[in-house]
């Protein structure tokens, strides 16, 4: 019973929509409403025939725009995940090592941005990063630069937006795994002659691997499909798969190809997740 409810949830809100998308990806585009042909038809003699069109998938291979967009999305997701990890780790560590009383306040500060609309926060970054925006004006006023930096509509702006948006998703799992580490372990390491840096790399870091894995997945997966941030902060050459999907769906009205793009993205993301799960299970069995 307890298991049944999440199962039903997954079935209704995940598996069925995915089945619909998958079915769409196998149909043929048409100028019609809806803009695709059914895959299941009754012909005049009353015989049921299926027309499965896997051409949409081959189409993705033919045009290197798609492969390029996938690679680009992966690259941006990977780099952003790494930056998030590097920025979030010291923050999570500091919160975990703070006095018990101030931890909740610090965590609140991490979560606080969620109280504002995500879209609003991304628009705010435009205000900061644009040519005559806050950042450039501040740097000019300080005399650090002679002319405004072109940050908006570059990959840099996309990275800034993504790291800013997804940082809490990295901090929280890291914090959870760091805060439950027994402080006596570090004392034991110091007692046995480990300097603070050695103790960190031999005790704290390896023990936080589950947190690193969880945080990285929480950042990497949604960033691969991210659409809003590259659309608002990125330039025309920032090609991410989310943007491609959007334009296939809304501009080209090619629902089957858009569905194929989405299906491939899902497969690309599911494979590393499954591998990670297997690795974790193997580790649990071992320990």
């Amino acid at each position: 019973m307890v298991i049944a409810i999440p199962m039903i949830w997954l079935l209704v809100f995940f598996l069925i929509p995915f089945a619909v998308v998958f079915k769409l990806s196998l149909s043929e585009a048409a100028i019609a409403r809806p803009p695709y042909l059914p895959i299941m038809t009754w012909d005049e003699e009353g015989i049921l025939s299926f027309i499965l069109n896997i051409g949409n998938y081959f189409y993705l291979l033919e045009d290197d725009l798609y492969i390029y967009a996938y690679m680009q999305s992966m690259k941006i997701a990977l780099v952003s995940t790494l930056i998030c990890l590097l920025v979030a780790y010291p923050m999570a560590l500091a919160i975990a090592r703070a006095k018990a009383g101030s931890r909740n306040l610090l965590l609140m500060l991490v979560i606080l941005p969620f109280w504002t609309s995500f879209l609003l926060r991304v628009y705010a970054w435009i205000g900061i990063l644009k040519t005559n925006g806050l950042l450039n004006n501040a740097l000019l006023w300080l005399g650090l630069i002679d002319q405004p930096l072109a940050i908006m509509q570059t990959d840099l702006a996309v990275y800034i937006g993504i790291v800013y948006t997804y940082l809490p998703f990295m901090i929280l799992p890291l914090y959870t795994s760091l805060v439950k580490q027994d402080a006596a372990l570090l004392e034991a390491a110091a007692d046995l002659g480990a300097r603070p840096a050695t103790a960190f790399f031999s005790v704290t870091l390896p023990l936080s691997f589950p947190g690193i894995a969880a945080g990285s997945l929480l950042v990497f997966i949604p960033v691969v499909g991210e659409f809003v941030i590259p659309a608002l902060l990125g330039g025309p050459d920032t090609l991410m798969i989310g943007k491609v999907l959007w334009s296939e769906f809304f501009s080209n009205r090619d629902w089957p190809v858009a569905s194929a793009v989405a299906t491939v993205m899902l497969v690309v993301l599911v494979v590393p997740i499954m591998l990670l799960r297997l690795a974790q299970q193997a580790d649990e069995v071992q320990s």
Binding site: A188, A189, A190, G193, A194
Partner: peptide, 18 residues
């Protein structure tokens, strides 16, 4: 602590679980 000629056995043992 890491330079003292002293070692300690902790109450919780503090063995490294990994």
């Amino acid at each position: 602590p890491f330079k003292r000629p002293v070692n300690m056995m902790f109450q919780s043992y503090a063995l490294f679980p990994h």
